[in-house]
């Protein structure tokens, strides 16, 4: 019944995604490394911008889905890992930032560093918190995100305060011939990374390992009684999710060329959560589709300013009221999401 199932990459172990990802990355390399240039219609720029952001958030939502959809861990501070990854990459690779630390290391080293730092934070938070009950884990992770955010704002000398870290290398833009080509190459490259991630998490969850995760979600006691160390599995799932968020953060920093606390607000967490629930947790392609729907809605609603009989001031508020009500409606009427499996998630429809 689901649209996602009919997508042309519906095979068991995510090979399709892997292949498509490889094609994307290859194409990205063609645009970035050869003198080939493209010119895109300006009116589509905004869609490309949001599509690139979608690819970045796509990696985020896949990691979150591993934690919540598959293992049942309610991580409400996902943005913290995203932010930590981005800041680590920015601080390691930036050259002469206006504020904060900039070490000027090569960007691949920095990107690896970003993933490691995010994973370490994930391990630290996980080791202490994954044993908490659902909603308390939500609060603990939320509090972690708030602490991380205020550290970034407060320690100007290290993190650059509200200005953040600038002068981060932008490898794709540097390689590509012009802005349009860079935009397309970035989209292809990030899309490729998202597809690789999709393939990886699909393999992970299709394997016996994934069955254990889902068993934990469904009934922890039973899982424990058959001799699986629930805590170890939970920890691993949490750290994988955090590392993926770190990767997403690193890509984001290398794309925008700057990081600042304003990019990493609770808004990011809310967006990926809505995307995941909308699409249907525990369905990898579903959560990506859900994220596409919510980000698409937010973007398209911006174009509604012209056709709505409202002042721009009122429109800005109405837009957010509608976004909030959509979230409420989805949870009420499609608790398993648009593409989710209600039975597997254990929710009543």
């Amino acid at each position: 019944m689901s649209v996602a199932d009919r997508l042309p990459l519906g095979d068991a172990a995510g090979n399709g995604a892997l292949l498509l990802g490889a094609v994307c990355v290859l194409l990205a390399a063609v645009f970035a490394l050869t003198p080939l240039v493209v010119s895109l219609p300006g009116s589509l720029y905004v869609f490309f911008e949001v599509a690139i952001l979608f690819a970045v958030y796509g990696v985020l939502v896949l990691g979150l889905d591993l934690q919540y959809g598959h293992t049942g861990l309610v991580n409400f501070g996902h943005v913290a890992f995203f932010a930590v990854g981005a800041y680590a990459v920015a601080m390691l690779s930036a050259r002469d930032s206006f504020a904060g630390v900039s070490l000027g290391l090569p960007w691949p080293v920095a990107l690896a560093g970003g993933v490691v730092v995010a994973a370490l934070l994930g391990a630290a938070v996980g080791a202490t918190s994954v044993r908490l009950r659902d909603d308390f884990l939500a609060v603990a992770t939320l509090a972690t995100a708030e602490i991380v955010h205020s550290l970034f704002v407060s320690f100007e000398g290290v993190f650059g305060g509200n200005v953040g870290i600038g002068s981060v290398p932008q490898p794709v833009s540097d390689l590509a011939g012009d802005a349009d080509t860079a935009m397309l190459a970035t989209l292809l490259l990030f899309g490729g990374v998202t597809l690789f991630t999709l393939a990886a998490v699909t393999r992970l969850t299709e394997a016996p390992y994934g069955r254990v995760l889902r068993a934990i979600r469904a009934d922890e006691l039973v899982t424990r009684s058959v001799g699986k160390s629930v805590l170890t599995y939970k920890m691993q799932s949490f750290v994988y999710g955090a590392a993926l968020a770190g990767l997403a953060g690193g890509l984001f920093a290398l794309y925008t060329g700057a990081v600042a606390p304003g990019y990493f607000t609770i808004q990011v967490t809310v967006t990926v959560w809505i995307g995941m629930l909308l699409g249907g947790a525990a369905n990898h392609r579903g959560v990506l589709a859900g994220l596409a729907v919510i980000m698409g809605l937010r973007l398209l609603s911006r174009f509604a300013l012209g056709v709505m009989p409202l002042s721009a001031d009122a429109f800005a508020s109405v837009r957010l009221v509608v976004v909030g009500l959509i979230l409420v409606a989805v949870i009420r009427y499609r608790p398993a999401g648009l593409w989710g499996d209600a039975e597997e998630l254990g929710v009543d429809t």
Binding site: Y45, V46, E49, L299, R302, A312, D313, A316
Partner: peptide, 21 residues
């Protein structure tokens, strides 16, 4: 006039939309 909420991410989208669309 378009809302950014003084968020750099939103501002980027808004500037692109204002300029290009």
């Amino acid at each position: 006039r378009r809302d950014t909420g003084v968020n750099p991410q939103e501002a980027r989208t808004v500037v692109t939309q204002l300029v290009e669309n």
